[in-house]
Write a protein that binds this DNA or RNA. Sequence first.
DNA 1: TTGAAAGCGCTAACAC
DNA 2: GTGTTAGCGCTTTCAA
Lengths: 362, 362
Amino acid sequence: MPTPRRAALPPRLASAEPGQGVTLADVALAAKVSLATASRVFSHPQLVREATAQRVHEAARRLSFRPNLLGAKLRAQRTRIVGVMLPTLDNAVFAECWRGIEESAMAAGYSLMLVTSNYEPARERERVEYLLRHRVDGMVLTVADASNSTVLDQLDRESVPYVLAYNQVSRDAAGHGRHSVSVDNQTSACEGVNALIAAGHRRIAVISGAFTASDRARQRFAGYADAMRDHGLPIREPVNLPSHTASNAPQIQALMAQPDAPTAFFCTNDLLAIGVISDLKRLGLRVPRDVSVLGYDGIALGALVEPPLATVVQPNADIGTQAITQLLHRLDVGSAGADGNATLLPHALRIEGTVSAPAVPA
Amino acid sequence: MPTPRRAALPPRLASAEPGQGVTLADVALAAKVSLATASRVFSHPQLVREATAQRVHEAARRLSFRPNLLGAKLRAQRTRIVGVMLPTLDNAVFAECWRGIEESAMAAGYSLMLVTSNYEPARERERVEYLLRHRVDGMVLTVADASNSTVLDQLDRESVPYVLAYNQVSRDAAGHGRHSVSVDNQTSACEGVNALIAAGHRRIAVISGAFTASDRARQRFAGYADAMRDHGLPIREPVNLPSHTASNAPQIQALMAQPDAPTAFFCTNDLLAIGVISDLKRLGLRVPRDVSVLGYDGIALGALVEPPLATVVQPNADIGTQAITQLLHRLDVGSAGADGNATLLPHALRIEGTVSAPAVPA
DNA sequence: TTGAAAGCGCTAACAC
DNA sequence: GTGTTAGCGCTTTCAA
């Protein structure tokens, strides 16, 4: 029979589970110190004498004391919880990013609360409100469109610290104070398309996710346009595909049936690229022999398929790590007033596998 | 200048942000009701007169009141937070599962806290302790090995409600009271391999993740063994690959160089299968013409590649949905004593694409 | 270095 | 229906 704690505790379930119901007060009592001292042992060890701390630790161990973070958070008016909002985990880009975030946050003693927005602004608002109710100290998020986002406006208004991941805020936005961590979408996309051009392609089409759902897609298309313009090549209208997972053979087929069918595709993300490659294969076309395909993202999976996916690589885990690190730094140091800075992480080009010279040099 | 709230609030930062610092007491004051009534308006609306409720809502709106969940949770001794521990999000299986979990939990008014264990028992223990400190009401988790898991033992000991996802607890474990939601790994794997055999294959090899890191892998191998034994075919030692992402061409090559090289591979997960297919292609082998490959998981990506990945499909989002639903039901109804029940969800076979008859009928 | 005491924001008896 | 009151578990002045 477990030692009965406390004389009588009517509304509390008399649990036999260790840790359950054992409070800091119990520990203090057992260690014959005050509640305050017991608390200090855990939050400000340097303020308490070594011997005393030992006694408290010992008592805590004996009672299987497990701190109730709720009490601490409520009182401290700081939750040490960071809210994370990502569009979806179904795209490996964000799953990889999460890994970076989780690792760094845990190491820094912060907790996380993850929500996904599914690229929908309405859901973004709902989820952000949810995070706010949990009194997260700050947020790391990727929004559909950073340049026109009601959630970001709200966060700014309420001065909730946050760092954007993947969304690249324009440098000249003049003091909106938005922090972001991303690659340079436009420049990197431009370089990718340049590589396509260097390989001999002149008829290059863009397959993209919905522009409204992703400012990245827009920026990457702009990079494509830059490259084409720089080389005096015709800029084609992008093909906006709604979803990653559906087969879009019809659209691709229509494109390939035209007399000036593209010899290369630039897809604004890797998942799209993988789908396009399959669609091309189903049309009897070989990649890269008949058509080249360039993706964007650098998800691990791309290196796993054969031929490996040519792509513009962004450091996904790093983006997460950097974003959370910057946020935690701001939270800890409290440089809330610091002006927004857009961190640009280096990207890389992986031009191989699904990209080669066009069959018939244009 | 914003209307100053409260006479003086020394330690509190006089913030101009809406919602920040506005408490239920402020709302009660503004609505000229007691704190208790204000609280009831939100938690037990049926206990308060309509007109009063209106006044409170109005005041809340005017003051931009945002409930502080921390206070509620601390007092209520129920957090309405569920901890979720998954091995990794890098495998789409779990990312898809998360979607199901998030959707259902949000709809039911529960919050989530996600952690990943990376298949490491040590990290499982650490992360579970972390969740426990947050006083989650229960957990949905996938552990490396459910039949030998210190975290599960701990959870049982502390009678923390939980439901396993993917881990399939043996039915005859006699009252350990473990709840789980999964497909029948062994049976489904057996069926998959049977399909391979039906297609004409007799030399079938298994490529698997580390058995120690996944009880599912072991169960699926057992299913393979069943099928082979049933047909009087030789059971081969499994090839255990450490990671999903690395190329394992050497091992595959060695296998294929043998005189009795397999004509088909059964991979215990889809990611592995995709890697194996690439490795085979790099060896100059065509899939499925020269070698067939069967995966396991049914991740969306598998249908996206060409040829589509033949696989044993499990309902990933459903596994998440069911697991969380069962847990929430237990939390709400409180049938804590109910004996563990292993829910088996239906699987499906997708035999096409990467599986065909062997080139040289054995 | 330690203790006493006052809450953080909210809910839930218990009265009226 | 509504108000009064007593905390949930913890941190943190302020004194000693």
